[in-house]
Design a protein around this nucleic acid. Sequence first.
DNA 1: CTCTGGCCTGTAAACGATTACAAGAACGAT
DNA 2: ATCGTTCTTGTAATCGTTTACAGGCCAGAG
Lengths: 328, 328
Amino acid sequence: MSRPTIAGVARAAGVSVASVSRVLNGLPATEEMTERVRRAVAELGYVPDARARSLKVGRTFQLTLAVADVGNPVYVTMMRAVEEVVSAAGYRLVVTTTGPDVVDEVALVQGMARGYADGLLISPIRVDEDLVKAIRACEVPVVVAGSVPSKAGVDTVRANSPKGMLLAVDHLTYCGRRRIAFLNGPADTVPGAARAKGFAEALRAHDLEPIAVAEAADFTFAAGRRVSGDVLRAKPNAVICANDLLAVGLMHELAAAGLDVPNDVAVVGMDDSELAEQSFPPLTSVNLGSAERGRRAAELLLARIDDNDRTPRRIVVQPSLSIRRSTP
Amino acid sequence: MSRPTIAGVARAAGVSVASVSRVLNGLPATEEMTERVRRAVAELGYVPDARARSLKVGRTFQLTLAVADVGNPVYVTMMRAVEEVVSAAGYRLVVTTTGPDVVDEVALVQGMARGYADGLLISPIRVDEDLVKAIRACEVPVVVAGSVPSKAGVDTVRANSPKGMLLAVDHLTYCGRRRIAFLNGPADTVPGAARAKGFAEALRAHDLEPIAVAEAADFTFAAGRRVSGDVLRAKPNAVICANDLLAVGLMHELAAAGLDVPNDVAVVGMDDSELAEQSFPPLTSVNLGSAERGRRAAELLLARIDDNDRTPRRIVVQPSLSIRRSTP
DNA sequence: CTCTGGCCTGTAAACGATTACAAGAACGAT
DNA sequence: ATCGTTCTTGTAATCGTTTACAGGCCAGAG
């Protein structure tokens, strides 16, 4: 006794499959018809098959979210926001981890042609020509959370890193710190490059010279710790970090070196993730609007699924600074 | 010019659709046939439709992972492990957040009958009769990460909280702490109940009386902070927390109260998540094997998808203690 | 030379829904 | 009473695969 199909329900209710389908999809039907179908559905415990439905209507009601590393708390924030929007719209979320390699991202984008999801929300950590091409050619709507050349002709939602950097430097100089170092992630990544550029500009705007710039191997706590020494040798009295994980890694090394945060060294993180609030001391962090980016990106994706002909939008979310205890 | 179908490939290659399908699925075919099909596939850029395939073969090659809160770092650890196992086996992972309500979990389990995934890996935060019934009746294989009555007849992988508690209490008494308090999450949850019981047993084994037991509204940082006061009023010299987030919340309150960790109060967390390592001071934490649980659970699920008649297994993962700086 | 058996390959029937189309019923207007 | 309109319902085609089945061909055995 296997799962009942729509045909079984139709038989049990003494009506046609078309009528069952109509009732189930809320199309007009008489009182009596609705009642008979409902009764048969309840009796048999019928649940429509999503696979069959997908094939016929050409939609799976699934969306794919691709991120580089689920362990990064900034993605947790984004994922929460995305989940909320898409599940409210009746979609499920397929979460995929791409890893740091761009070829995996390209493969993922091309694989979307299989049609297992109705859209893709991707936050690429590295971008190259192949990826742009793959995104252009993608069978399903794509929204990029991050920067991608405008010729990709795709909706994007990105942060304003330079402005965020400026907020951080403004705040630090206001606190009287002028020996500012920068702890970046890999500069060959999209966020790494943006932040490096933003940092240089922000210092220039304040007529300052960078004291030190270090690059961690990736955007993780462990990598941050490993290169903290390079930053500290320059004796900065403030360090801006490219994300919160790196900042927390740095603070551990500062504690190990017997330096006080914020008195000896002020620390500013970026992303304003949950970790910023949880770290000790609580981390002053540039809020790059990850929740809002997630939300807006999800909304763009839904809008594009409804109408794929709309002109691509490029949304920039403005940053703000969450001041906590790691700065004076 | 829409997506090519298998019929288009067949036409282009001058063969039948069956032959195309066979070549694509690696069934025996002559050298020449294989070559012609490959060429046509490449030329048209054909990619098989997952929706149609799912309908026919009755599988989607997707698995659902349902957790209560993606913000809890313990789920990040589990998710990583699960992703690794299932993607190696050729499955995609659908991540769903159930929220704290058991009715949502029941709805989720019942919704699996739609067949959008081939299996469900669920870590229920609360369990009731309805959920057990739903799991028993579920159309697709289910593996539970956590405790569920054995009559559910389902594969489970769970932690050994009592043993973990004992490790924590052993360690604290060894450090000379005997005024031990407990900061729990909601006691009406599965992990909350298990840990409360484990804590009581562990203290009894050491002939100790609990100094204080508090219950946070949920397993989050903010909730932990809010009830920390209740714990501290009893002037404990050690506090065991039901998870790392609660422990970090408590440590913030300790700092605010001017108390030193570990000298004034030793703190032990549970889960040994990434946060334990990142917090300051680094948190001594009971490793309940979340990565291993994720891995084993995923393996059980894959095995059951292969053979749904195997007798249910109940795996218990043993805990260990990761000693860091929050204890003397 | 014929027959049997074993490959390949193609035709067509699923899988389980949605939906275009047509047919029938009901009803009001003439 | 007849016609036309509208509303409901049923029949059957369709989505794009996989796969059971059968037919055709060839080789080897008798």
